[in-house]
Design a binder for these strands. Structure first.
Lengths: 346, 346
DNA sequence: TTGTAGGCGTTATCAA
DNA sequence: TTGATAACGCCTACAA
């Protein structure tokens, strides 16, 4: 009943109306709408005129009932930083819009017990009747989910996969290279005592950042090992990590946190410890998400074109034809801001 | 568990399958699914058994084509802080899920030229065929949109409306009272030189925070006027506002920013100016969004139960029967953290 | 290049 | 309390 006394809201034109106004058959209208071949220019014009005259918009429900597509893209996300998520979502949304698709959101909570979580996830995916899904980390590397999708023949595109990169279409940057460029930046500033704050265990892209960072330093000839402490991509995890680094063991002159949120936490820990950033200690992050400019000093970080990645992922998903399983690589860039500087001379 | 034996995609059971297995008619299954009256307990049991045996889930497309509902809730948002948005979205999502509805996202960009923006917005709303919409500020108070929705008979629920609160169902907290409680907190700490960082002009809830703050101080007998500077709810706007407050005119001992993002910016401006928070100056925000704990010191602020507000809004939208136009008021709470303290004695 | 008939999985109408 | 049967708006055959 709710919408029923719609009064006028239901006054949408249908394909019939368009056909009648244009003086053609139903099927011809359908052809024009779906850009099918074998349509004369004259007919197309007539139909298009009628469409815009009537302000006709195809009914998605009818379309998906009759056809094989639902015109819905599902975006699955877990629970990463809100900044990252919003950016991805924005990109995916824009690509959907450009292709006349709708965007449907589904949240899953990976902190739930694993069995429950899996049941939920698979239920979502199989009942949601989307034309395909966009997966963000850490879902990107969830093998149970991937197996299920493959077995069911459901299309999907992964963002920043770290596992089995050739398994499906995907979009990513070169995390290792990006972290390496950050390592070189710190090295060139003169830092030789370095530390890295790790990401969540299942977030494999974070592991690649760590690897790239350390490998680059090794190549440059760093004399001593890089200290490593756990983190979980959260601000609070960053505080804990920073505190640990500053209290015990040899104090680093520069800290690389594998995402911006934890880098911000590290900066807070420095402030607590009475250290000035970057005068006393340098801090760098990864993502260039919104928080990188919501801290003071502004964070030196690696820019991932997150929104673009979302856009590219959805475009890949919606592209017709055989999906390409080679990762679609986007450019990153080193963003040097105010949180890194040369170390004090001892 | 259960999902995996689904075998192949597309092999969804239909109402026919259920009816056959249960040995009843199609319509009876429909009745059970829609919880219609006049169904015997025995029949219902049989049907329910068949449903779960077949793992049947109604096809939304068919449902909305045949019926009057689409089972889709649309969430419209503009471009406020990502934190706020994600929280609202989460709440709305959960409520949809609880009611077997889907969530569809639509972004609009209010920074586009007004005419274009309006056309886009109205097009979205009228073609989207959702059962209703959730509006967040500043869309909440967009009269053109409201008029259009009312004229079209489309249901909607507004979150934190500041205009014509009785016009539609809505969810909010008492912004003025909440800001007043913050004012009293600062007053009790001993602050007498106060400033407020305003919100975006069209964000009327922000204006109510300002009003409540100032009115409370007036009532307490504040001897001098509260300084007011513009802000736009962004971190950068907060930096500008803070800088202005610290450079020119009489320096306040406490600054109230009307949202957390700008409060974080104010804190950054203080740091730049060499002031310690809260020793030299107190800063307070509003929202208790995620950024309130992503700065150091942690921000004193007002907690709005944002996710709950989203949940309540969607529940209101989905509730059957005549909508209630009295605002659904939720509780706020003052969250005293580390960014406020007694002023230094001059 | 264009048009016609049938059906997709539900809900709605009306009768039993 | 139940059940046939006709929509709903579009797409996929297939025919002209």
């Amino acid at each position: 009943m709710s919408m029923s006394e719609n009064g006028r809201a239901g006054e949408h034109a249908t394909m019939d109306d368009v056909a009648r106004l244009a003086g053609v058959s139903l099927k011809s209208v359908s052809r024009v709408i779906n850009a099918e071949p074998h349509v004369s220019a004259r007919l197309r014009e007539k139909v298009e005129a009628a469409i815009s005259a009537l302000n006709y918009v195809p009914d998605t429900a009818a379309r998906s009932l009759a056809g094989s597509r639902t015109f819905i893209v599902g975006l699955l996300f877990d629970n990463p930083s809100p900044n990252y998520t919003m950016n991805i979502q924005k990109g995916v949304y824009e690509a959907c819009r450009a292709n006349q698709y709708h965007l449907r959101i589904d949240n899953v909570d990976s902190s739930a017990p694993r069995a429950e979580y899996e049941a939920r996830l698979l239920g979502l995916v199989s009942n949601s009747r989307c034309d395909g899904f966009i997966l963000t980390p850490p879902l990107t590397d969830d093998v149970v989910l991937l197996d299920f999708l493959d077995r069911s023949g459901i299309r999907y595109v992964r963002i920043s996969p770290a596992l089995q990169a050739q398994r499906s279409p995907s979009v990513c940057i070169d995390d290792a290279q990006a972290a390496a460029s950050l390592a070189r930046h710190l090295w060139e500033l003169g830092h030789r005592k370095l530390a890295v704050v790790l990401g969540p265990e299942r977030h494999l892209a974070a592991a690649r950042r760590r690897d790239g960072f350390i490998a680059a330093l090794a190549e440059l000839g760093l004399p001593e090992p890089v200290r490593e402490v756990p983190g979980n991509f959260s601000f609070e995890g960053g505080i804990r990590a920073g505190t640990e680094l500053l209290q015990d063991g040899p104090r680093p002159t520069a800290i690389f946190a594998t995402n911006d949120d934890s880098a911000a936490g590290v900066m807070a820990a420095c402030a607590q410890a009475g250290l000035r950033v970057p005068a006393d200690i340098s801090v760098a992050g990864f993502d260039d998400s919104w928080i990188a400019r919501s801290v003071w000093p502004y964070l030196t970080t690696v820019n991932q074109p997150i929104e673009e990645m979302g856009y590219a992922a959805a475009s890949l998903l919606l592209r017709k034809g055989e999906p390409q399983n080679t990762p679609h690589l986007l450019d990153y860039s080193l963003v040097v801001r105010d949180s890194t500087a040369a170390p004090l001379r001892a």
